[in-house]
Nucleic acid binder design. Structure first.
Lengths: 246, 246
DNA sequence: AAGCATGCGTGCGCTGTCGTACAGACAGTT
DNA sequence: AACTGTCTGTACGACAGCGCACGCATGCTT
């Protein structure tokens, strides 16, 4: 794996994560002592399927995806989490494991908090509980959309949607992602991704170069993507707005 | 629609719903005044996509499915809710709407509570909050599994899975469901359901008769279904056990 | 500068599912 | 007993996506 392995020495601020940013100062001071900065490296596994997460993770520049592995070895991504969310919701919802794997899709920074500390913090019943509940709703929306998309839309459309999901969580228009990674996320053959990506490239929407995708025309990407992208994004934005107006 | 339209005069008890049954007596007494019995009729819409649910519904003998409609008019079921759960989780998670429709798939009884009363009750911070949170986790598992299943498994397998989901929530081995209803839930053509159902019938697993499916060999159904059924069920059982041991 | 692993492009036959169109069977109604 | 709407079965061409098997290009390594 040779995709940009340089270490990033810049500092990341907690407020870059939307959920942490939504906390009041006073509540944040309660959380802060238990919160530590972390570097996420590409393909790092944050937790395995069936195991209880040891931490709750709040990405700032990193992107994590929740992958489900089938018995036959193929995989599918069911949710994408960036600086808009948190990894380890099951600690809030059940204090226990989930049947999927959390994999770092884009190296970067973030913060984490030990499972027990997170549970304690949530139980202090501050505003964070509601913030996390609303995020759970956004997560459910995303999963719903994934299910529907898997049933009804073409690989071409799904690729566009997936690229937009990454794009929304990145500062630039450059996505570091091989076609093989994309195929694992979409749950399709690598060759199918090649085909779809070629179409996009020929149309001048993206340019692809050994694991580096540059998005040239975002509007076109949105146009070619299925409704799923817009629907999930609208819902996410709506819930986020509620959080900041609370 | 002529599938058994007789009115059922038997009484249904709140405890038939697993979530209500898990409440302590003292907490139940706080909820009881706001809880009213309801009859769910076949194809009744409990809430529309995009609207805020007016009630939280706790089915006892009825079965409700959450359907997502695509722009092109096709639909897909993303979750099934029977006496094991509650319809209207978004009232807990965001106090607001969800992008799907709740449709009664099997007429029956249950209880309901006005949205505001439900929110108030939850905010009293009894054990019910945790019960509902755990159920949210089960719901997420079910949706995850639906997404994966839609991607990787055949219609034959999915039909088996779907029949088991109904079977688990019904007292008998008879399911009242036309092939058209099944096709709407699975998000496939009605003819594809016919094909799959014929295979099952020829193998002696079910017998099909104008909207009445009789399951003859449940084990065989489980064997022919994909892993998704077992996975989701195990997780659901695990969470339910946690609830009752709490 | 050569070597090698990784990532991408291509071809081909196969199968599952779709779209469409229609025919037969059953149940409730008059 | 005939009628009508609903539910189920059948047929066939089209095609998206799969599995497999290559070949080529690129960029890091030594």
């Amino acid at each position: 794996m040779s995709l940009k392995t340089q270490t990033d020495n810049t500092v990341s601020l907690p407020q870059q994560n939307h959920l942490l940013a939504a906390m009041s100062d006073s509540e944040w001071h309660q959380w802060e002592p238990d919160m530590e900065p972390v570097d996420f490296s590409l393909n790092q596994v944050l937790y395995e399927s069936g195991k209880t997460p040891a931490y709750m993770y709040f990405p700032t520049t990193a992107i994590v995806s929740l992958l489900y592995m089938t018995q036959s070895g193929s995989s599918s991504e069911v949710a994408v989490i960036g600086n808009d969310g948190v990894v380890g919701l099951s600690l809030l919802l059940s204090g226990s494991n989930t049947p999927n794997q959390a994999l770092v899709q884009c190296a970067g920074k973030g913060f984490r908090m030990r499972a027990q500390a997170a549970k304690n913090a949530i139980n202090r019943e501050g505003a964070m509980l509601n913030i996390l509940l609303r995020y759970s709703q956004a997560m459910i929306t995303q999963m719903t959309q994934t299910a529907v998309c898997n049933r009804h839309h073409s690989i071409d459309q799904q690729l566009c949607r997936r690229l937009l999901l990454s794009l929304d969580r990145l500062p630039s228009n450059e996505i570091l992602m091989t076609q093989e990674m994309l195929s694992n996320m979409l749950g399709v053959r690598r060759e199918s991704v090649t085909d779809a990506a070629l179409k996009l490239q020929e149309a001048g929407v993206i340019s692809y170069k050994r694991g580096i995708i540059t998005v040239l025309d975002r509007k076109a990407l949105e146009g070619r993507s299925c409704e799923c992208y817009a629907t999930a994004k609208n819902e996410q934005d709506r819930l986020q707005k509620m959080t900041f107006n609370a």
